[in-house]
Amino acid sequence: MYTKMIALAVGAGLLFAGAAQAQDFQPKTAGTVMLNVRATGVLPTGDDPITTLAGASTGLKADVSNDVMPTIGLTYFFTDNVAVEVIAGTTQHTIRAQGPGADIKVQKTWVLPPVVSLQYHFMPDQKVSPYVGAGVNYMLFYSEKDYNGFGLKVDDGFGYSLQAGVDVAVRDRWSVNADVKKIFFETDATDRFNGVKSKVTLNPWVVSGGFGYKF
């Protein structure tokens, strides 16, 4: 559902892009600053076992829900091809303990996962310009709300990311952007009330679509 929503937003922009001629758009060049406003789905993929503090199995696994929120990305071009991007946004996720006959709501938490990526842009002077990137991120968990007698503490920490995307020029300084990141992040979650813990391997896909403007 999340990827379909983002694909529809990008598709609508591409309809406008089809009408633009080569001379109607501003290419990517050294010194360009690009602002992207996107709809972003954060889709965690982890499914880690929950154990006691001594390491014994509880038969449960940690599940973390998806979320979609707006995000902002700012890109600066050092050369026509090489750029650095910073993205910021915040999403809310529900952590559940799941197992045979069990599906227990543990916590809702907000996470702020800024990502800084070094990018290489192919064909920066063309209307359709794909790019790849790699970077680092920091996961900051805040405004937690516990449920069902749990007192969960999820540790903040660093991860790294890989990225692929494409900018499609629309007209003048405007463009349509589609972007996919894979973030690799593992942390610890400890229930200080019940004496259980879990490795939480989030490793989310971050799927985005939106519009960009070059300054």
Rank of each mutant, 00 (worst) to 15 (best):
T71N: 09
K108R: 13
N66R: 12
P100A: 10
G101I: 02
T90V: 14
T75W: 06
L74D: 06
T94Y: 03
T91N: 12
Y76G: 09
T91D: 14
K108N: 15
S65I: 03
A88T: 11
I95A: 12
R96F: 03
A102S: 11
F78C: 09
A102E: 07
P100D: 05
T109F: 00
I104W: 02
L74C: 09
D103M: 05
A97Y: 05
K61A: 11
V106F: 00
S65A: 06
P100E: 02
V86E: 09
Q98K: 14
I72Q: 08
K61N: 15
K105R: 10
V64D: 00
R96K: 15
P100C: 03
V86N: 08
Y76A: 05
T94C: 04
G99W: 02
H93S: 08
V86F: 15
V84G: 06
V68A: 14
D103S: 13
I72S: 08
V86A: 14
N81T: 08
T71F: 13
V82L: 15
N66H: 11
D67A: 14
S65F: 00
Y76S: 05
I104N: 01
S65K: 08
A97K: 00
K108Y: 06
T90W: 04
S65N: 07
D103I: 04
I87G: 07
I104H: 00
N66F: 10
A62L: 13
T91S: 15
R96L: 06
R96D: 14
V82T: 11
Q107I: 01
A83T: 09
K108F: 02
K105A: 01
Q107Y: 02
I72E: 06
V64T: 14
G89V: 01
G89L: 00
D103A: 07
T90F: 11
T79M: 10
G73D: 12
I104K: 01
D103H: 09
R96W: 05
F77H: 14
G73I: 07
Q92G: 11
T91Q: 09
Q98G: 03
L74R: 03
I87N: 15
L60G: 00
A62M: 15
Q92H: 08
V86M: 15
K108H: 12
K108G: 10
A62H: 09
Q92N: 12
T91H: 10
T94H: 09
V68Y: 06
A97Q: 03
T91K: 04
K105C: 01
T91C: 02
P100K: 09
T79H: 10
A88Q: 04
Q92Y: 05
P70E: 07
Q98H: 03
I87D: 14
